[in-house]
Design a protein around this nucleic acid. Structure first.
Length: 495
DNA sequence: AAAAAAC
């Protein structure tokens, strides 16, 4: 086991690391830090949670000359939240040396950022679009960059980002050290990466540590229209402490979050159409436990380090196998156990096998829980709640009542009644999630104009559900969760 | 085909 003490770091940085509570280096840190200090280019394959940010953050901070007022380190990240998270960690590492760190990302007042840039930061952490914006405004000068980091590079070098990255790189001196980190390392990405780097050293965290050994992976075969009920029953029977549900589109995430709230879950959605302020509030509410279900697009799939996520549910199987790896990596972090359940429509089974081939790990089939299973889960939740209340020991003043009751009834009956009282029974409010994920191979002729979901099924879908009618009767119009079918396509059909 | 990222 390597200790930070043995890595030839400066007093100031060691102190900062100690303050962060770190003593032993993780495998990726033990390998990356000495190489990074030596000035080599590095390609590192590791997910966040392996201590990747600290691995590149320490050598970067060590190389900063704080007497020099120019920007010497640049870190590029694929999402705004990730840029913020990374900048916070760099700030902590650089605290001892008083290195100035600034996050630069879209959705934030640019004048404010320009003022902050005038404070002469040493390290910039940012997203591609806004970094380019600043370069074009000449408010960000990169000619003194010595260390460049591409974080979550598989995403960064994806189509769409690649041009932005190239433009940014053309503004960074060729004489520099480049570090590239990525959770997955498909061949084409590797080839592109090497174009930007000089004789890079490969560092790979062992497969066992990198992937997902402490995450139990399951799939549930379920037709589209039953997905929502199955999801609710899964959550009822698992009673997750913190869960993330991934949906395929922004619309779908909105609908899911609304529908879950309607059924009494503490759930909120996050995706790229929300304002940056809203995105951060939702994330913070989830981190602080004010909500325990986060519904998200892939904006939250990568890199975000939220501790204590016990369950990841893929409402839709993700489009790219890589996305799957990232999504389920939000749980089972820091050595804890995690569970990932993917809902898969029978028509998508072959795609599921493809994902398995990529991850080289099988997902175990899981039966959809029945409503009775869900009830059992909720009953167990009630037992836990009661036990917690008992151990809190704040019920002394109720003992008088307890004596009276026990004079008349048996203890078993009393406890059973109390449990029944606090058990939240499964909510079967009918819900219809529209905007069904279109299967790739079906996107032809008739689908292109009048894309699926929407109009036709609304009435039959809501009312005709099994079990829907019991307590809420004919609520199908309102139960349809958030005025579906409107959205962007308001055109009158021409045929 | 979707999402992310600049106004």
């Amino acid at each position: 086991m390597t200790k930070f003490k043995d890595l030839n770091l400066s007093e100031e940085t060691l102190k900062a690391i100690d303050k962060m509570g770190f003593e032993e280096a993780t495998p990726i840190q033990a390998e990356t830090i000495p190489l990074g200090l030596s000035g080599k280019d590095i390609i590192g394959q590791a997910q966040t949670g392996t201590g990747k940010t600290t691995a590149f953050g320490i050598p970067m901070v060590e190389k900063i000359d704080t007497k020099n007022d120019s920007i010497q380190g640049l870190i590029i990240a694929p999402t705004r939240e990730l840029a913020i998270q990374v900048s916070e960690e760099l700030y902590r590492i650089g605290g001892g040396k008083r290195a100035r760190v600034l996050a630069v990302y879209g959705g934030q007042d640019i004048q404010r950022q320009i003022r902050a840039l005038k404070q002469r930061p040493h390290i910039i952490v940012g997203t591609p679009g806004r970094i380019l914006d600043h370069i074009n405004r000449r408010t960000l000068k990169l000619e003194n960059i010595q260390t460049l980091v591409l974080d979550e590079a598989d995403e960064m070098l994806n189509m769409g980002f690649i041009q932005d990255i190239e433009s940014i790189l053309s503004n960074v001196p060729a004489e520099r050290q480049t570090l590239l980190f990525s959770a997955t390392m498909p061949g084409p990405i590797r080839a592109i990466a090497e174009r930007f780097m000089k004789d890079p050293e490969m560092i790979k965290v062992k497969a066992k540590e990198m992937t997902v050994s402490n995450i139990d992976q399951y799939f549930v075969k379920v037709p589209q229209r039953e997905k929502f009920d199955v999801l609710a029953r899964l959550m009822d029977s698992h009673s997750p402490e913190l869960a993330i549900i991934f949906g395929r589109t922004k619309r779908r995430v909105d609908e899911l979050a609304n529908a879950l709230s309607l059924r009494g879950y503490q759930a909120e959605g996050i995706h790229g159409d929300l304002t940056q302020a809203k995105r951060l509030t939702v994330l913070n509410r989830f981190k602080s436990g004010k909500i325990d279900v986060l519904v998200a697009t892939d904006v939250a799939a990568r890199g975000l380090d939220i501790s204590g996520v016990t369950h990841v549910y893929n409402y839709d199987i993700p489009q790219d196998p890589e996305s799957y790896v990232h999504r389920i990596g939000r749980t089972g972090r820091a050595g804890k156990e995690g569970m990932a359940v993917t809902l898969v429509d029978p028509r998508e089974m072959s795609y599921l096998r493809e994902v398995e081939r990529t991850t080289k790990k099988r997902m175990e089939p899981m039966e959809a829980p029945s409503w009775d299973d869900a009830l059992v889960g909720l009953q167990q939740g009630a037992v836990t709640e009661l036990e917690e209340a008992i151990s809190k020991n704040e019920w002394a003043e109720y003992r008088v009542f307890a004596k009276d009751i026990l004079d008349q009834y048996s203890p078993e009956d009393v406890v059973a009644a109390a449990l029944k009282l606090i058990t939240k029974e499964p909510d079967r409010t009918p819900v219809h999630i529209t905007n069904e994920a279109a299967l790739p191979q079906r996107r032809d002729k008739f689908r292109s104009k009048n894309s699926g979901g929407g109009g036709y099924r609304k009435s039959s879908g809501g009312g005709g559900r099994q079990g829907g009618g019991r307590s809420y009767g004919n609520r199908d119009r309102k139960g349809g969760s958030g005025g579906s079918g409107g959205g962007g396509r308001r055109k009158y059909s021409s045929n």
